[in-house]
Simulated scan of single mutants.
Amino acid sequence: MNHTAASVTAAVAFVWLGMVLAISFLEAPLKFRAPEVTVRVGLGIGRLVFRALNAVEALFALVVIVTVATGAPSTAVAALTAAAAVVLAVQLAAVRPALNRRSDRVLAGEELPRSRGHLAYIALEAAKVVVLVALGACALAA
């Protein structure tokens, strides 16, 4: 992989990683522990934050895909780029819509049990963290 493509790929992967860690594993769970934050308020904030995060993630994925595609990547970098894109696509196409429908119901006042969809989203976030660490490291080693 050429030096510029490798550097851009690593930089974007690690910035993307930092955003996922900060928002999904720090901000999201902590907001519900803040005084006076109700489930409704937390859900409203969460929807806005995750909509923004996912938009930035889609942009990062596009940048990485284009950079990798034009940079003569190793097999590992190409596979990890595909894995990151697939995880994000599953989150956006399968898990987020279900979570949005559920949060619509909660925001409308319905009492619902804990969501398994959140567990799926968290599992995908954890997988994405592993993939992004590996992608950044492999790009730097290229």
Results as ranks from 00 to 15, higher is better:
residue 29 P to W: 06
residue 29 P to F: 04
residue 29 P to N: 05
residue 30 L to H: 13
residue 30 L to R: 13
residue 30 L to F: 12
residue 30 L to D: 08
residue 30 L to W: 12
residue 30 L to Y: 09
residue 30 L to G: 03
residue 31 K to G: 03
residue 31 K to L: 01
residue 31 K to N: 01
residue 31 K to P: 01
residue 31 K to W: 02
residue 31 K to M: 02
residue 32 F to P: 00
residue 32 F to G: 00
residue 32 F to E: 00
residue 33 R to D: 05
residue 33 R to Y: 10
residue 33 R to L: 11
residue 34 A to W: 02
residue 34 A to I: 05
residue 34 A to K: 01
residue 35 P to H: 04
residue 35 P to E: 08
residue 35 P to N: 08
residue 35 P to R: 06
residue 35 P to F: 01
residue 35 P to W: 00
residue 35 P to M: 04
residue 36 E to N: 13
residue 36 E to S: 11
residue 36 E to K: 07
residue 36 E to L: 09
residue 36 E to R: 08
residue 36 E to F: 09
residue 37 V to G: 02
residue 37 V to Y: 03
residue 37 V to L: 01
residue 37 V to N: 00
residue 37 V to I: 12
residue 37 V to R: 02
residue 37 V to M: 03
residue 37 V to Q: 00
residue 38 T to Y: 03
residue 38 T to I: 00
residue 38 T to M: 02
residue 40 R to E: 13
residue 40 R to K: 15
residue 40 R to Y: 04
residue 40 R to C: 04
residue 41 V to S: 11
residue 41 V to L: 14
residue 41 V to N: 07
residue 41 V to D: 10
residue 42 G to E: 01
residue 42 G to H: 09
residue 42 G to S: 06
residue 43 L to V: 10
residue 43 L to M: 09
residue 43 L to N: 13
residue 43 L to R: 10
residue 44 G to C: 06
residue 44 G to H: 07
residue 44 G to V: 05
residue 44 G to I: 06
residue 45 I to L: 11
residue 45 I to F: 05
residue 45 I to N: 01
residue 45 I to E: 04
residue 46 G to H: 00
residue 46 G to I: 03
residue 46 G to T: 03
residue 46 G to Y: 00
residue 47 R to N: 08
residue 47 R to E: 05
residue 47 R to T: 06
residue 47 R to C: 01
residue 47 R to M: 02
residue 47 R to D: 03
residue 47 R to W: 01
residue 48 L to E: 10
residue 48 L to F: 10
residue 48 L to V: 15
residue 48 L to N: 12
residue 49 V to A: 12
residue 49 V to H: 08
residue 49 V to N: 08
residue 49 V to E: 08
residue 49 V to Q: 09
residue 49 V to W: 03
residue 49 V to G: 05
residue 50 F to P: 00
residue 50 F to Y: 07
residue 50 F to D: 02
residue 50 F to L: 02
residue 50 F to H: 04
residue 50 F to E: 01
residue 51 R to N: 11
residue 51 R to V: 09
residue 51 R to H: 09
residue 51 R to Y: 05
residue 52 A to K: 13
residue 52 A to F: 12
residue 52 A to Y: 10
residue 52 A to E: 07
residue 52 A to S: 14
residue 52 A to G: 13
residue 53 L to M: 15
residue 53 L to H: 11
residue 53 L to T: 08
residue 53 L to S: 05
residue 54 N to C: 08
residue 54 N to W: 13
residue 54 N to H: 15
residue 54 N to I: 06
residue 54 N to D: 15
residue 55 A to E: 10
residue 55 A to M: 11
residue 55 A to L: 14
residue 55 A to Q: 10
residue 56 V to I: 15
residue 56 V to G: 07
residue 56 V to L: 14
residue 56 V to H: 06
residue 56 V to K: 07
residue 56 V to M: 09
residue 56 V to E: 04
residue 57 E to Y: 05
residue 57 E to K: 03
residue 57 E to M: 10
residue 57 E to N: 09
residue 57 E to R: 04
residue 57 E to W: 04
residue 58 A to P: 05
residue 58 A to Y: 07
residue 58 A to G: 13
residue 58 A to V: 11
residue 58 A to F: 11
residue 58 A to C: 11
residue 59 L to G: 15
residue 59 L to P: 11
residue 59 L to Y: 14
residue 59 L to I: 15
residue 59 L to H: 12
residue 59 L to W: 15
residue 60 F to C: 14
residue 60 F to G: 05
residue 60 F to D: 07
residue 60 F to S: 10
residue 60 F to W: 07
residue 60 F to H: 05
residue 60 F to N: 04
residue 60 F to E: 00
